Amino acid sequence: MWNGKKSITLSKLCILLFLGLLIATVVSAPWLTHWFVNFSQAGLKETESYFLATIYVGFFPAAYLLCSLLCLLRRIDAGRVFVAGNVELLRRISWSCFVGSGIALVSVFYYFPWFFVAVAAAFMGLIVRVVKNIFAQAVELKNDADYTV
């Protein structure tokens, strides 16, 4: 039977898979960008170094986001849900989304489709920010309840 514990385990595995894909992308970035630039019909021959820069700079907020998400899931799995540390992790995750959005937005200057990545990352950052605010309120209520009893 499917339960919360299995769901958290699946989420952790997915995060590790994405972390592996992220590392594979960074390691193979020179080959991937060369292939993409040659495959594309958009005349991108002079932009290969820009694509590499976007991938390498974007690696850091993406890796930070995935590691923070994994830490958050580990805490939740351990039963530490409404704690201040999780609010901080959600804040870091949202800022990682916003930083990634900024990197993609700068990359629009050489390849317009990055705009859609920028919008998606900003929207995800906004959603996580709202969840962070909900968690912050829940932590405050839990702390008040703990001191009342």
Rank of each mutant, 00 (worst) to 15 (best):
Phe51Pro: 04
Tyr64Leu: 12
Phe60Tyr: 09
Thr47Tyr: 03
Arg75Glu: 13
Ser96Tyr: 01
Thr33Gln: 04
Arg75Met: 07
Val27Leu: 12
Val108Met: 09
Ala53Gly: 07
Ser28Met: 12
Leu126Asn: 05
Leu19Cys: 07
Ile93Trp: 00
Phe115Trp: 05
Val87Met: 04
Ala118Gly: 15
Phe51Lys: 10
Leu105Val: 00
Phe115Gln: 06
Asn38Asp: 07
Pro61Cys: 03
Ser11Gln: 14
Leu90Trp: 03
Thr25Val: 11
Val37Met: 06
Cys14Glu: 03
Phe82Met: 01
Asn86Phe: 02
Leu70Ser: 03
Cys67Phe: 15
Pro113Glu: 06
Gly58Asp: 14
Ile15Trp: 03
Phe59His: 06
Phe98Gly: 07
Ile23Lys: 00
Cys97Pro: 07
Leu16Phe: 01
Glu48Trp: 00
Ala118Ser: 15
Ser28Arg: 12
Phe36Met: 10
Ala78Asn: 01
Ser40Ala: 11
Asn38Arg: 11
Phe109Trp: 10
Leu65Gln: 07
Ser94His: 05
Ala120Gly: 04
Arg80Tyr: 04
Cys67Gln: 09
Leu69Gln: 12
Leu72Asn: 09
Arg91Asp: 13
Cys97Met: 05
Ala104Thr: 04
Phe98Met: 11
Val83Ala: 06
Leu52Ala: 08
Val27Cys: 03
Val26Ala: 08
Gly85Asn: 11
Phe98Ala: 14
Tyr64Ala: 15
Ser94Trp: 01
Leu19Phe: 12
Thr54Tyr: 03
Ile23Val: 15
Trp31Val: 12
Phe98Asn: 09
Lys12Ile: 12
Ala120Val: 10
Gly85Gln: 11
Ala104Asn: 14
Val119Asn: 10
Phe51Tyr: 08
Leu73Lys: 03
